[in-house]
Write a protein that binds this DNA or RNA. Structure first.
Length: 109
DNA sequence: TTTCTCACA
DNA sequence: TGTGAGCA
């Protein structure tokens, strides 16, 4: 049972942050969840597709947000998109997000 | 025990 | 992309 960890991990927060706010996963956990190998996750980090925090002994800590991003990345890779291409997609997605905010501001005026 | 980096196939 | 060595 690998999905068990994710749910029990929320209880570990103590109830203060019981939601998906800031749970961190180890590279092994993320690999299990996404069904990929740890080296693959490291490649994604090296390619700047995800930027996990570093904790304690320099070990990667993936937030819930990173895992979601990884899910999107996996979809793209399965469609044949290369890592540089995915990086571009994420970059454009961010730009779209920023433009959406701009549009929202303009509408509000 | 797990993860780290580096290197190789 | 996956595996192994050697270390913390």
């Amino acid at each position: 049972m690998t999905d068990d960890d994710a749910s029990s991990r929320t209880q570990q927060a103590g109830g203060l942050l019981e939601d998906t706010s800031a749970p961190f996963y180890t590279i092994g956990q993320v690999a299990e969840i996404l069904g990929m190998q740890p080296p693959a996750l490291r490649r994604l980090d090296e390619q700047a597709i995800v930027s996990p925090e570093r904790s304690e002994g320099g070990q990667r800590r993936y937030s819930h947000d990173e895992v979601q991003r990884l899910r999107e990345v996996l979809e793209l890779t399965e469609e044949g998109v290369t890592l540089p291409g995915i990086r571009k997609v994420l970059e454009l997605r961010q730009q779209v997000d920023e433009l959406k905010e701009e549009v929202a501001e303009l509408k509000g005026q």
